[in-house]
């Protein structure tokens, strides 16, 4: 299938300066995102998922700087933007973000409708009545009943799920082309989570939105994602379609993630945990970052970082296990069992 690339990141490196030390947060990452798809980024906390998404909007803290690489969006290279005014033309209008916690991302002192209208007036230049109407329409779009009345209510009058809807409506009010959802449902109940996931899917279809979905919940990934990128220690280790990642994963880290899902636990047995801790990104990493925690690690993993091996048109894996010289390895049961699961 031939798809149009809407955003492409190439050899992107991002550093943080922390007390004079340099932390290599995003390590030489390349990824392209197709128009209209939903890409999920999964990984443990601290793997750089959020930092990566924030780089696309220039939202990282001031002590961060881009080492090298490009973020091509349309004709522009977002990695070159330094002026805040330039970013403001991108944020909201072109690329919008929904943050994790709906309890803290709204201003408690301003009625929710005004907060939606604010986004509209800044980015679309609408004022007064038209802005209000646009905002009410945005609230209706995300499934808020009685939007005209809800317009003048305050955030505390909304439940968690409703607040997250408001946040999403702010994000889509300006009809962005890309919507980044940074763990939008982790603070919510499962039933509300299902509603929000459905909402995001509907919006994606209706407005032809491209969605980037950051999460650590593989169940959520299975629900929304067309493609999945697995992140570890600031780099992508496996990229593929949802089916490829869930049923035919080839990277030991993806196997470990799949194995540690509590859904697959057996009563009376310990849950699978990944031994060790993620690497210290202050230090340069020799070889494959996952090698010290990887039971399948080969000798070369400790010496040289693996390149991306292409498994199919859409499936890329960064692991020496796919080298033709590598021994045949039986993936762990959980990653295998999944294939037979009905």
């Amino acid at each position: 299938m031939d798809q149009e690339t809407i955003l492409s990141v190439e050899n992107f490196n991002l550093f943080f300066n922390l007390r004079g030390e340099r932390l290599h947060a995003i390590r030489n990452v390349s990824l392209s995102i197709n128009r209209g798809e939903c890409l999920a980024i999964v990984g443990e906390s601290g793997s750089g998922k959020s930092v990566f998404c924030r780089s696309l909007l220039g939202l990282n803290d001031k002590n961060s700087y881009i080492g090298s690489g490009t973020i091509t969006y349309g004709q522009r290279d977002l990695a070159k933007i330094t002026a805040e005014e330039e970013w403001q033309k991108i944020r909201g209008k072109e690329i919008a973000i929904v943050m994790q916690d709906p309890m803290t991302s709204l201003n408690p002192l301003i009625p929710v409708g005004k907060q939606v209208a604010e986004a509209v007036s800044i980015h679309q230049g609408l004022k007064g009545k038209p802005a209000k109407q646009r905002a009410i329409q945005a609230l209706v779009d995300v499934g808020i009943d009685n939007a005209a009345k809800r317009y003048s209510q305050y955030p505390h009058e909304f439940s968690g799920g409703m607040r997250q809807r408001v946040v999403i409506s702010i994000a889509i009010a300006c009809q962005p082309r890309i919507l980044i959802c940074d763990e939008p449902t982790t603070a919510l109940d499962v039933t509300i989570q299902a509603q929000i996931l459905n909402l995001v899917k509907d919006l994606q279809k209706k407005h032809g939105l491209t969605t980037i979905y950051v999460t650590h919940d593989l169940g959520v990934v299975a629900t929304v994602a067309d493609r999945v990128a697995v992140m570890y220690a600031g780099e992508f280790v496996e990229i593929g379609t949802a089916e490829e990642i869930f049923f035919e994963s080839r990277h030991p880290y993806t196997w470990a993630l799949l194995s540690s899902m509590p859904q697959l636990g057996t009563k009376g047995e310990d849950l699978f945990t990944i031994p060790g801790a993620p690497p210290n990104l202050f230090m340069p990493i020799a070889g494959d970052a996952f090698a010290p925690r990887n039971p399948f690690a080969l000798k070369i993993d400790f010496v040289e970082a693996p390149p991306f091996f292409q498994v199919s048109d859409t499936h890329f894996v960064k692991s020496w296990l796919l080298d033709e010289m590598a021994p045949d390895i039986q993936p762990p049961e959980a990653a295998m069992r999944k294939r037979g699961l009905r």
Binding site: V190, Q193, D217, A222, F246, K338
Partner: peptide, 14 residues
């Protein structure tokens, strides 16, 4: 409804 809402780690089911 609660049980139904649990996201299964399987894209075909979901």
């Amino acid at each position: 409804a609660l049980v139904n809402a649990i996201p299964q780690p399987d894209p075909t089911i979901q």
